[in-house]
C-alpha cells in the first residue's frame, strides 16, 4: 500500500511548469510526458498530477470522451484513423486525442501496442495526438490509468477517442469513462448473438457495422442487427425514445464516414453529452478504495466517508482525505 502525503506543495519545479505551458500548446513531447505522469504510480507523480490539474483550471476545455470498442480486428483503429481526418476536414479548429488501450500479457506484464499501424495521420500536426496504453493489470486495473489520462486530455482536447478491445468487462469499463460509447461490429459475424447473451447490447449508445465495403453487405448486416437487437428490446427506430443509431461504414472504402462524422460533431457541440464528472470521479475513487481497503472500505465510502469530500479538492487531495479517514476508521491499517 502506498503511503500518502497529506498535503501538496504549491511549488512546482520549473521543468514541470515549462512542460505544462508547452503542453497547453499541444506540443507533443511535453504533453506526452504529462500523460506519463497520469500513468505513473509514485508519490511524486501524484503530487505532480495535482499541480498539473490545478494549473489547468480555468483555461480548460471539457472535451467529448468517445469510447470506441468492439471485437478484435473489427477495424476500430482504421475507422478512428479515417474519422479523425474527416473530423478535421469538417472542422479544422478541432483538437483530437486518441488513446488506444491494448491488453497486457498475463505472463510477463508486457504488452504489444500496435494500433498505430492503422492510422495514417499527417506528421507534426498538433491537432492530432495518438497515444497507446497497456491495460496493465498489475498497476491498478483497466479503467484507472485510462481514466487518469482522460482527466488530463479532456482539459486540452475537444474530442478524446478511447479505443479498447473486447466484449464484456472492458466494454462496461469504457462505458464508465466515456460520454458516448460506440460498439464496432463486423458484418454478419456470428458473434452478435454472443453479445446479446451477455446482455451487453444495452451498453453502447451507438452501433457501427464496419467493413461494409459493398452496399449489399451493408443492407444485409443492418437487417440482421435490427432483428437481433429486437430480441433484447433495443430499438433502432429513430423515433423511439430509448432508440440507438446504427452506422454502416467501410474504413477502407471510406463509406459512411461522412454521416458518422456529422453525428460525432453534433455530440461534440452538445454540452449535454458530457457525463457528470463528479460521478465519474467518485466511481474511480470508489474503485480505488475497494482495491485498497476491500469491500468493507467501499461500504464505508458509500455510506459516510464520501461526504467529507469537497468539490474544491483535486482528485489527488480527495484520495488523501479518504486515505486519512480510512486509516482512522480501520485502525489495523495505521502502521
Amino acid at each position: 500500500m502506498s503511503k500518502n502525503q497529506n498535503r501538496f506543495d504549491a511549488m512546482m519545479t520549473p521543468e514541470l511548469r515549462d512542460m505544462i505551458a508547452r503542453a497547453k500548446h499541444l506540443e507533443k513531447w511535453p504533453l506526452a510526458r504529462l500523460i506519463s505522469l497520469f500513468e505513473t504510480n509514485t508519490e511524486q507523480a501524484k503530487q505532480d498530477r495535482h499541480s498539473v490539474m490545478s494549473s489547468l483550471k480555468g483555461s480548460a476545455k471539457n472535451g467529448l470522451i468517445l469510447g470506441i470498442t468492439g471485437t478484435p480486428g473489427a477495424g476500430k483503429s482504421s475507422l478512428i484513423g479515417e474519422l479523425c481526418l474527416s473530423l478535421l476536414a469538417e472542422k479544422p479548429e478541432l483538437n483530437i486525442a486518441v488513446l488506444a488501450v491494448d491488453p497486457s500479457s498475463q505472463r510477463s506484464g508486457g504488452a504489444l501496442l500496435g494500433d498505430r499501424t492503422r492510422t495514417n495521420f499527417p506528421i507534426n500536426d498538433k491537432r492530432l495526438f495518438f497515444r497507446s496504453q497497456a491495460s496493465d493489470l498489475d498497476l491498478g486495473g483497466v479503467g484507472k490509468k485510462t481514466y487518469q489520462v482522460t482527466r488530463l486530455l479532456r482539459q486540452l482536447f475537444d474530442i478524446i477517442i478511447i479505443e479498447t478491445v473486447g466484449i464484456g468487462q472492458s466494454e462496461i469499463e469504457v462505458e464508465q469513462l466515456s460520454d458516448h460509447t460506440c460498439l464496432v461490429l463486423q458484418p454478419l459475424a456470428g458473434d452478435q448473438v454472443q453479445f446479446m447473451k451477455a446482455g451487453i447490447m444495452e451498453v453502447p449508445d451507438t452501433f457501427i457495422i464496419n467493413k461494409c465495403d459493398e452496399d449489399s453487405l451493408a443492407k444485409r448486416s443492418y437487417h440482421l442487427l435490427k432483428t437481433s437487437l429486437k430480441l433484447v428490446n433495443v430499438s433502432l427506430n429513430k423515433h423511439n425514445e430509448n432508440s440507438k443509431s446504427v452506422f454502416l461504414t467501410s474504413a477502407t472504402k471510406q463509406k459512411g464516414i461522412d454521416e458518422l462524422t456529422h453525428f460525432l460533431l453534433q455530440l461534440e457541440s452538445d454540452s449535454s453529452v458530457r457525463k457528470d464528472r463528479q460521478t465519474q470521479e467518485y466511481f474511480y475513487l470508489g474503485k480505488w478504495i475497494q482495491q485498497e481497503f476491500g469491500r468493507f472500505g467501499l461500504t464505508l465510502f458509500n455510506q459516510s466517508v464520501k461526504t467529507a469530500l469537497t468539490s474544491q479538492q483535486s482528485y489527488e487531495e480527495k484520495e488523501n482525505t479518504l486515505f486519512e479517514m480510512m486509516k482512522k476508521m480501520i485502525p489495523s491499517l495505521s502502521r
Binding site: 508486457g110 504489444l112 501496442l113
Partner: peptide
Amino acid sequence: SVAAKHAGFDVIYF
C-alpha cells in the same frame, strides 16, 4: 518486439 513484450516491456511496434 515479441521478445521485449515477453521480457515485460510495453512495446510500440507499427
